[in-house]
């Protein structure tokens, strides 16, 4: 078990949770004319034919967007505090960018860029955070999406080295071979505070 005794930021600023509830798309369809609340109840309410169920499985797709990726990342725990990356504002929906293939073709890769902000510029946990983000997205996104993880410009003193490290396939693979490191990452992902000290 790696022993890391120095606390890099002992008194971080805590942000309120980001509200990612999607605003309902306004469409000129019957159900939006009739109700804003799909689950109305009453002994006779099922009779008029259920308007909601019919289009539940419509073929209309819902593309993966930056909010959805943020939702995958928000619950990851910081390796140093019993707080999530969202609370520490390490990740932020507006710092996640998705670029679909141009021109659109089914086999081509979609590029995803996730920028994160360490709480202090000398944060030594940034590699672990970056690794946790990468592992999470490796597991949660389809293969056709190519992910870049970077620290936000100007937020870390060794920005370039860090970015290189996080996006070097072989170094990432090597890091994940290290069971101690992987265990820390797994704990961050599982929403537990890893025991570093």
């Amino acid at each position: 078990m790696a022993s890391i005794t120095e606390i890099y930021n002992a008194n971080p600023i805590i942000a309120a949770s980001v509200n990612t509830a999607r605003t309902k798309p306004i469409r000129h369809e019957t159900r939006y004319l009739w109700s804003d609340d799909p689950d109305s109840k009453g002994p006779l309410s099922g009779l008029a034919g259920s308007r909601e169920e019919s289009d539940e499985d419509s073929e209309e797709g819902e593309e993966i967007d930056n909010i959805e990726i943020f939702e995958l990342l928000r619950g990851i725990y910081d390796p140093e505090h019993p707080l999530t990356l969202e609370q520490l504002q390490v990740v932020n929906p507006s710092h996640i960018f998705i670029r679909p293939p141009n021109p659109p073709s089914p086999g081509a890769a979609t590029n995803v860029l996730v920028e994160f902000t360490p709480t202090v510029p000398h944060c030594g946990m940034s590699t672990i955070i970056g690794l946790a983000l990468r592992v999470r997205l490796l597991r949660a996104l389809p293969e056709r999406m190519k992910v870049d993880i970077r620290v936000r410009k100007g937020s870390h003193q060794s920005e370039n080295a860090l970015n290189k490290q996080l996006n070097d396939k072989e170094r990432v693979a090597a890091a994940l071979e290290n069971t101690a490191l992987l265990e820390v990452v797994e704990k961050c992902l599982a929403g537990e505070q890893p025991t570093l000290i």
Partner: peptide, 21 residues
């Protein structure tokens, strides 16, 4: 499950991510 995380419905993807993790 790597295919299921690419489902075209968001609610399905959410479960697939959970299961795969």
């Amino acid at each position: 499950l790597g295919k299921a995380v690419d489902d075209h419905k968001r609610s399905v993807r959410k479960e697939a991510v959970e299961a795969r993790a």
